[in-house]
Design a protein around this nucleic acid. Structure first.
Length: 302
DNA sequence: CTAGCATGATCAC
DNA sequence: TGATCCTGCTAGC
């Protein structure tokens, strides 16, 4: 998926183009017809994100909750107020950047006929947004939405990073599961996905198979701070880039992805720092990438 | 044309 | 741990 940074950008963009407007909400595909009927004709008050969850609050005390899953994506279009509104969601190629139409704004004529499986379409007087392929798209009451938030760990892109740090250290530092799996558990930290997990562990020099509770607390604090910084960059850039500038050039790969990552999808290729071939393992049904040299075993699970 | 794959998560066993 | 769901692109017949 779009990891947490994409969902935060998405929330911001929805807020920019739709907040304060009455929307027509529909489900061209039909699978969200009932939910769309609940929202249709209501005003979108505010869109926010917590980790990978998107919440859009509508008048009438209804909350639209969307989770993009692996494949979900939003596309946008409209008049000049939609200029720069990029499509956000599942990339089709490694490191793909968000795409948007940079053409001079033609007169807006209303939304085009839906293409493919459009689960939900939002339409204002100025433009439209199409959602396809989400794993969740539902309408909640306010208490139901709060219950969803309650189950989530701290968000590195949340407002209170100091409180988040304490929560992160408390939760990760108490778990007996390996750190690589713990970082993907949204109830321990919300918003980290497979790329940030691999890259954060690499940058911290941590052995992925160490238990959470065996990672020294200062290392956990540094890990939290680094994740916050990387994801903030992701929000700014609309793309995940985790390598430091000095590590990016490579005669072998002159074209993008010009070493945007240290380990993600670099299995078998030499580590940018130590030259050891990057490893690939299957962990809880996801691919884990790491450098056996830079992230040497310390206190692994036996 | 089909199978396989992807930055995800849940549920049953 | 394995099966399942969501969608669209791409590699390989």
């Amino acid at each position: 998926m779009p990891e947490g940074h994409s969902v935060h950008r998405l929330a911001r963009q929805l807020d920019d183009v739709f907040a304060g407007q009455v929307l027509q909400v529909s489900s061209p595909q039909g699978r969200f017809a009932a939910g769309a009927a609940l929202l249709d004709g209501h005003e979108l008050l505010e869109a926010t994100a917590h980790g990978k969850q998107l919440f859009a609050r509508f008048s009438g005390e209804r909350i639209l909750r969307v989770h993009l899953g692996l494949y979900g994506a939003f596309g946008f279009g409209g008049d000049q107020t939609f200029r720069g509104a990029s499509s956000i969601g599942a990339p089709r190629r490694i490191g793909e950047k968000e795409a948007y139409d940079d053409e001079a704004p033609a007169a807006y004529d209303g939304p085009p006929a839906p293409v493919g499986q459009v689960r939900m379409r939002l339409v204002s007087a100025h433009g439209w947004a199409d959602l396809r392929g989400p794993s969740v798209c539902e309408v909640l009451t306010i208490p139901e939405a709060e219950a969803v938030r309650w189950r989530l760990g701290p968000d590195p892109l949340g407002a209170d990073t100091a409180a988040g740090e304490e929560e992160f250290v408390g939760r990760i530092g108490a778990t007996g599961t390996v750190i690589a799996a713990a970082l993907m558990n949204q109830s321990l930290i919300a918003g980290v996905g497979n790329i940030y997990r691999a890259e954060a562990l690499f940058r911290a020099g941590l052995d992925p198979w160490m238990r959470g509770r065996d990672v020294p607390v200062p290392a956990l604090r540094a890990l939290w701070a680094d994740i916050c910084a990387m994801m903030a960059d992701g929000v700014r850039d609309g793309r995940i880039i985790t390598t430091r500038v000095r590590d990016r050039s490579d005669p072998e790969a002159p074209v993008w992805p010009d070493h945007a990552y240290y380990t993600y999808q670099r299995q078998g290729r030499p580590c940018l720092i130590c030259g050891t071939p990057i490893g690939l393992a299957e962990l809880a049904a996801r691919k884990l990438y790491w450098c056996p040299g830079c992230q040497a075993p310390t206190r692994r699970v036996p």
